[in-house]
Amino acid sequence: MTFFEIIILAIIQGLTEFLPISSSAHLILPAEILGWRNQGLAFDVAVHVGSLMAVVIYLRKDVVDLTVAWFSHGLGKQQTTQSKLAWWIIIATIPGVVFGFLMKDWIALNARTALVIACTTIIFGLLLWYADIKAKQLKTIEKIGLKEAIVIGLAQAIAIIPGTSRSGITMTAGLMLGLDRESTAKFSFLLSIPIILGAGLFSVLELLGSVAKVNWNELFYGAAFSFVAAYLCIFLFLSWISKIGMLPFVIYRLVLGFVLLYIVLG
């Protein structure tokens, strides 16, 4: 890849991993529309590592508190609010892991196309809009229970389909369950940590079994630019989401989806 392509793809990953507009869709699009060469597994791992570092560092206090609470109280009878939340994150991660393991190859062969991305971008964008305008926004993140964890976890499993958006579908589910915007966004970001980590480790194992050459400069710059973009994205999103709502992202998804449909079918 050229340095320009590295920067663009890394920034795309960093921004779209946490915005409700689908990172997988945007990483596929340059190859589909601009004819760019596929960035490859190693670069994909690198930019996800950058995004993972950003969310862990930004939410470091929550990550430390949840980890300490789980090891201190998670396996005992006297659960705390934090240890319960840690359990809900673990439980919500399971459907995505199972579905991803079972369907990963089929999705890669049949669903990573511009047409699929166009349709899912529009459909799940409209669903996000519906959830946002109908949301009661009565619950904070501390009020999440087993039901919410299971529903959000099942929603996250759907995100293996390109164009769905992992953050978008989990926020949609959270809003429908009555969470306020900031709480559903924060839970979605916390939920991203184990799923990105798991997917990254799986990809590393694949990479270790590959004979492909690795360009370490590409990986370093990819991870670095992805980290910066993701960190800024998380900061701005959590600062603004309660005020601006999901409508700007819905509009973006609809425009992107119909442009893609025009390109594919036109």
Results as ranks from 00 to 15, higher is better:
F237W: 11
F187K: 00
L59H: 07
Y262A: 06
F258G: 02
K84N: 09
L75Y: 11
K84Q: 09
I21F: 06
L201V: 14
S239A: 15
L41N: 01
M53D: 02
E218V: 05
G200P: 09
N215C: 14
K134G: 05
L254W: 11
A223S: 08
L191E: 06
F99P: 00
G174W: 07
L177A: 03
K104S: 13
L85D: 09
A157C: 03
D62F: 09
F101C: 03
T113N: 15
L175C: 05
S239H: 15
S22P: 11
H48Y: 13
N217I: 05
F43K: 01
W129D: 10
N215R: 12
R166A: 02
D132P: 00
L197K: 02
D44Y: 08
L190G: 07
L175E: 04
F202W: 11
N215I: 12
D132K: 01
G257A: 13
A159S: 01
A212Q: 13
I57Q: 04
S83N: 04
A155E: 00
F202I: 08
H26L: 01
V204Q: 01
D65V: 05
T172R: 04
I21K: 02
F101K: 06
G100A: 04
I117N: 05
G96R: 01
G168H: 07
L260G: 01
T120G: 14
I6D: 00
R181Y: 12
W129F: 15
R60Y: 14
W106F: 13
I11K: 02
A118L: 13
H48S: 07
F220T: 09
A42R: 02
Q137S: 11
F43I: 09
